[in-house]
Design a protein around this nucleic acid. Sequence first.
DNA 1: CGTTGGATTGACAAATATCAATCATGGTGG
DNA 2: CCACCATGATTGATATTTGTCAATCCAACG
Lengths: 243, 243
Amino acid sequence: MYVDVKSTGEAHASSGDGRYAGTKLSQSRSIPAWDDVAGDLDLRTSCFESHATIITEDDDADHVFRIRSGQVMLYRLLSDGRRQIVDLLAAGDFFGMSTTGSYDCSAEAIGAVVVDTIRQSCAPASDGLQAHLNRCLVQRVEALHSHAALLGRKSAHERVSTFIMRFVNGRGQVGCPGPKSGDAAVVVLRMTRQEIADYLGLTIETVSRVLSDMKRKGVIAIEKNDRIHIGSVCRLCKLTGVH
Amino acid sequence: MYVDVKSTGEAHASSGDGRYAGTKLSQSRSIPAWDDVAGDLDLRTSCFESHATIITEDDDADHVFRIRSGQVMLYRLLSDGRRQIVDLLAAGDFFGMSTTGSYDCSAEAIGAVVVDTIRQSCAPASDGLQAHLNRCLVQRVEALHSHAALLGRKSAHERVSTFIMRFVNGRGQVGCPGPKSGDAAVVVLRMTRQEIADYLGLTIETVSRVLSDMKRKGVIAIEKNDRIHIGSVCRLCKLTGVH
DNA sequence: CGTTGGATTGACAAATATCAATCATGGTGG
DNA sequence: CCACCATGATTGATATTTGTCAATCCAACG
């Protein structure tokens, strides 16, 4: 009714899943359906293929974007080329908001992406958009807090474990449903080792070594470089540093 | 006129300074003055002394807070006690918003702090509050992106330099006004070495060593542990990794 | 069947953490 | 007023983690 995810395309197993499930924020009840909001907004819809750049850091912040389907990564570059992927976004998420007049980071499509494009200039007019934006922004802030804790305080093993757990259906952030053993899972990584490394603040070699180590210890098995088989989700979860 | 910082208490040299200066976001023009918004909100005002805990991670997210004066740090704890300070807030900033029903991190006063307390339940009603929240949230997201880049990709020297630059009036984020040499400055650190370390994702010893190293090289001089004299802001700025 | 780009592995180097003294500094009580 | 204490900061020696550089490896594709 007041949640729009279902109507905006498939939910990727890899990120958007269950994002709004269990939301208790009182505000939720008053947020209108996105489709109703969108009607007043003079949207354009754009498609991007894998690895296409959607926005570039420091460009004029002309538009705000809302993801219809697919995943988007936001990244910052240091002057010498070091890259930090600062956030991973999925269907329903917004990006491109700015307080400075230019984008604070670049956005690149992970796989094919469809976005709604909203002109910055007509954004303030819509209270419905404000409500959707604010919910998304609070979610982003929460995710960025988690990510700061990961980047600042977690070991390489904990970072990689956390990253994999992120894609295990429903788990990860919300808290395990308890240690029921033997719960296996398969997740598909849609990012290259380089992208994973740039997200986790590590090098490609360290990511590779940690994955190999987890293979050796039987925590995971890797098929075709991007399918991770998890023997026991609980066991993996214990490696994340959260519990 | 439509910016409220001036009316809500002294601007600390250490953080809130010039936060809204130069904002080009078209939305700004339509944001009502905070005092006008506040009138409808049934606010309570609370004071906290230095190091007081204002909210605790995982507690019920009953209230949203707006800082009238002073600084607040937000932090996450890992189960084994590792702490990451995820954000530093100043006058005009909001915290305590949640999508889960509980706070995602703890908040502690840095020095004396005065906050306006807004009941979560009456927050959605106010469009003016939504507009203020929106601006603050976008700012927080931008700051958290910067911080992720720092934590994920910068060396200890770059982190400490960036941290000090943050408190140099006006500079830091926006971009240097050019290399005019001989521009000295003094900043006062209102945080202990432990807090700085927990913010920068380092240990107290590393922070101390980096500061000593910068002293040895003549980049800074330290007086009474918390006053940093900067010989050339430009020189310091070049150490941040941004340029 | 060779080529190519991403991934893995190994040897080694560099950065940062850890553990343990020692050093200020400010406050307190004699 | 001064010695003592407590707390935070600094420094040193060493360990650990992660990065760097270089050599394969592997799978997809022409």
